[in-house]
Design a binder for these strands. Structure first.
Length: 766
RNA sequence: GGCCCUGUAGCCCAAUUGGCAGAGGCACGCGACUUAAAAUCGCGCCAGUGUGGGUUCGAGUCCCACCAGGGCCA
């Protein structure tokens, strides 16, 4: 095991046999928190570095939209990559929306493939400096690798470049450094690159293949080097055509693909001719074939992929690579380690001390937590200059805070702080036992609240998919491994609520105007007499379309506001705020009140009278519907069912107590105030929040008779009512007796009769 | 460019997961109450489910293609 780790003496087997620096290096390979000199996202305007997750697609900071630059800096990292596999696999354990799971899987970016070692053509292949390792998801195309590409920053570039190519390579390297990753990854047809003058050997056939550098290969992804298979990868194809490199097909495309991409002059109907043409001159086709198919041109003395379908070819090649020591099947992830330090004041200080000789120790446990020093000026040092040295606010802290003496040695405090995510990674655990002075959460409290599958229900926005929700899963797993928490996952069930949207209005210059002051004149919208155009978007300040909840509360009460928000529509979808509709739920509450309380006298109308059979059935049906809907978080449906029941009560002089006692608790979560008031008036001394959720009587849901729709050939032709316990034959007989049904069956042969119990009857004739 | 979500009445939304397209609300119309209006109560109105195919006895629901809106990743 130790042998496989970098820099360890062969033969060393025991920890104590290792030199201190070897021990340190080994530990560093495994530490979950480590310092590293890495290319980071530096945002001079914010005066801080940012995690990949905090940088938008167009290279701006997620907060504030400022430009972000790559630059190397020594920073704290958290080794989230050590948990890649479990973070991906354990998504199986949780009840989350599939799109969020998918986003996390994509972000983690698991890909199966193989690593392949390409020896340099002139080297002895003994030293690691003479081997280029690449990762590929398509080891089956190895016979088609006709060149290699290193990222311009790849450490081998300097040593392999020939003198003749040296100037060109250096010029290209500095040109590439000036481009952003986003730029470099953009699918430009025009590829750039420079030949290093060096060659590698393709391990499958010992062919000498040229080594290029090109900026479409990124150092931060995979090994920073690729084997290029131009026949089967579009970017490699574009590159090879541009620089006139051999394009060797090793997978046979589908007929459709050949037809579609063949050059002019081919007989597109003659499959054999197309294939022959492709094998002879794949470079004349207009694209790379990236799909799967049978292998061709892929054979050496020991292994043949010819005729094998892609999955089989992949494993055959991986096996061969492993047998010959040229590589092995492996899994690669897109997720990078998490850049965990920030140059901000408002963040948790690291409990870390730096010794004068550079070694690092943790702050003594008795001195935890490390509190931020009081400072007058705690702003980050913002700058327009991307090369300005980072200045953390804590570097301006009093010397008494910055220096700590331990055993006579003066240590310097770490002056970076943790990112805002640090707190959200574990707050849910602290909330369980917030006053515990001994532990971050007591074991008993943790088991009680988190037991089973973690937090029962976590409601939040989808924007956290690859930030908070990934980071906190990582921390939770670390805590789980250390035995501090009992579940492998923090959030058993996740629910994403949608956004509230509202109409927004722009004037003729395209500037947003205050939506509340816009007048609607039969679909023509004006603001201060000027016409404005209406659009639509997430409610908020930027679109000037926010509706203050205070106004709604003031006018209708907060039960109405609450009810309205729940009634808008499915919780997980974005919904339009339409002030006009509020009166609907407000009327419901007023009607409810009038049903229960005499408006004139204020007398409670709930009596001990028995409910009649129909009302009882309605009640129990409602209990079931509301219960099911609340479980499914379909609050809009639950409220609709209660409105329906309430409408049934309108004609009654008094409300039977058995109805009231069940109905009010059903509504209480949605309209707590009015329900509490009615509950008290009904004679209860305890709050309604302490009462049990009503349960329905299944017997009350069973009807004596059922009305069946009768279809003939799938079209509704009649309806029959039969006793609930009628058997199929009886139902069918009843159906045939219906006049209209009989008419549509007249003179035809019955082919089939489908009786779906409690649903319908379909008679197929022909 | 790839992937994901959504599309049902003038509007917001339901539809027991493949079984009668309508629960509820808004808006609108008519009627009752009222001197009148508001409020209230009653009654009514409107779509064949974005488009085109397919599977099925039967499709809003499943499959394929396309269109539109929103999102994620390049």
């Amino acid at each position: 095991m130790l042998d496989t780790l970098g820099g360890v003496e062969p033969g060393a087997r025991k920890w104590t046999e290792l030199a201190p620096d070897q021990q340190a290096r080994l530990l560093d390979e495994y530490r979950l928190a480590y310092l590293a000199e890495v290319p980071v996202n530096w945002c001079p305007a914010l005066g801080t570095v940012l995690a990949n997750e905090e940088v938008t697609n167009d290279g701006k900071s997620e907060r504030g939209n400022h430009p972000v630059y790559k630059r190397p800096m020594k920073q704290w990292m958290l080794r989230i990559t050590a948990y890649c596999e479990r973070l991906a696999d354990d998504l199986e354990l949780v009840d989350w929306p599939e799109p969020i799971k998918l986003m996390q899987r994509n972000w983690i970016g698991r890909s199966e493939g193989a690593e392949v070692h390409f020896p340099l053509a002139y080297g002895s292949a003994q030293s690691p400096d003479e081997i280029i390792t690449v990762f590929t998801t398509r080891p089956d195309t190895l016979f088609g690798a006709t060149y290699m590409v290193l990222a311009p920053e790849h450490p081998l570039v300097g040593s392999i470049t020939t003198d003749a190519q040296s100037d060109a390579v250096k010029a290209y390297q500095s040109q590439a450094a000036a481009r952003s990753d986003i730029d470099r990854q953009a699918d430009a047809k025009e590829k750039t690159g420079v030949f290093t003058g060096a060659y590698a050997l393709n391990p499958v056939d010992n062919d000498k293949i040229p080594i290029w550098i090109a900026d479409y290969v990124m150092m931060g992804y995979g090994t920073g080097a690729i084997m290029a298979v131009p026949a089967h990868d579009q970017r490699d194809f574009d590159f090879a055509r541009q620089f006139d490199i051999e394009i060797k097909p090793v997978v046979l495309p589908t007929q459709d693909w050949l037809k579609h991409h063949a050059p002019e002059g081919c007989d597109k109907e003659d499959v054999h001719d197309l294939m022959a043409h492709y094998v002879a001159a794949a470079n004349t086709f207009d694209a790379a074939f990236g799909g799967t198919g049978a292998g061709i041109n892929s054979e050496n003395d020991e292994v043949s992929l010819n005729g094998l379908l892609t999955p089989d070819a992949k494993s055959a090649m991986s096996d061969w690579l492993k047998r010959r020591g040229f590589g092995k099947a492996t899994i690669q992830y897109k997720l990078r380690d998490w850049l965990f330090s920030r140059q901000r004041y408002w963040g948790e200080p690291f409990p870390i001390l730096h010794a004068p000789d550079g070694h690092i120790i943790p702050v003594n446990e008795a001195d935890l937590p490390v509190a931020l020093p009081e400072m007058d000026d705690f702003k980050p040092s913002a700058s327009d200059d991307p090369d300005a040295p980072p200045q953390t606010p804590l570097s301006r802290a009093p010397a008494s805070w910055k220096t700590v003496e331990v055993n006579g040695v003066k240590y310097a405090r770490e002056l970076n702080t943790m990112p805002q995510w640090a707190g959200s990674c574990w707050y849910y655990l602290r909330y369980l036992d917030a006053h515990n002075e001994d532990r971050f959460v007591g074991e008993e409290a943790e088991r009680y609240w988190m037991g089973g599958n973690g937090i029962d229900l976590y409601v939040g926005g989808a924007e956290h998919a690859v930030l908070h929700l990934l980071y906190s899963r990582f921390w939770h797993k670390v805590l789980h491994d250390l035995g501090h928490v009992s579940t492998p996952e923090p959030f058993g069930r996740l629910f994403n609520q949608g956004y509230i949207q509202a109409y927004a209005y722009t004037d003729q210059r395209g500037v947003y105007v205050d939506a509340e002051k816009v007048q609607d004149n039969d679909g023509r919208f004006t603001f201060g007499g000027e016409p404005v155009s209406r659009e639509f978007g997430k409610m908020g300040k930027s679109l000037k379309n926010a509706v203050g909840p205070d106004d709604v509360c003031e006018k209708y009460g907060c039960d109405t506001l609450r009810l309205y928000e729940m009634y808008l529509g499915p919780l997980d979808q974005s919904k339009v705020w339409n002030t006009r509709d509020i009166v609907g739920v407000h009327r419901f509450l007023q009607r409810l009140w009038r049903n229960f309380v005499d408006e004139e006298t204020g007398e409670l109308l709930v009596t001990s009278d028995r409910a009649d059979e129909a009302l009882k059935r309605k009640l129990h049906k409602t209990i079931k519907r509301v219960t099911d809907a609340m479980d499914a978080m379909a609050f809009n449906v639950a409220i609709a069912a209660l409105i329906e029941l309430n409408n049934e009560l309108v004609g009654l002089k008094t409300i039977p107590r058995e109805v009231a006692e069940n109905m009010i608790p059903l509504l209480a979560p949605s309209a707590p105030h009015i329900c509490e008031e009615l509950w008290q008036r009904m004679g209860h001394e305890d709050s309604i929040s302490t009462t049990n959720w009503p349960t329905h009587d299944p017997a009350m849901l069973i009807e004596d008779t059922i009305e069946y729709p009768v279809q003939v050939n799938g079209k509704l032709r009649g309806k029959v009512t039969v006793p609930t316990d009628a058997d199929d034959a009886a139902i069918e007989a009843a159906a045939r007796e219906d006049e209209n049904v009989a008419e549509h069956m007249a003179g035809k042969t019955v082919r089939k009769v489908i009786v779906v119990p409690k649903r319908l009857i379909n008679i197929v004739v022909g």
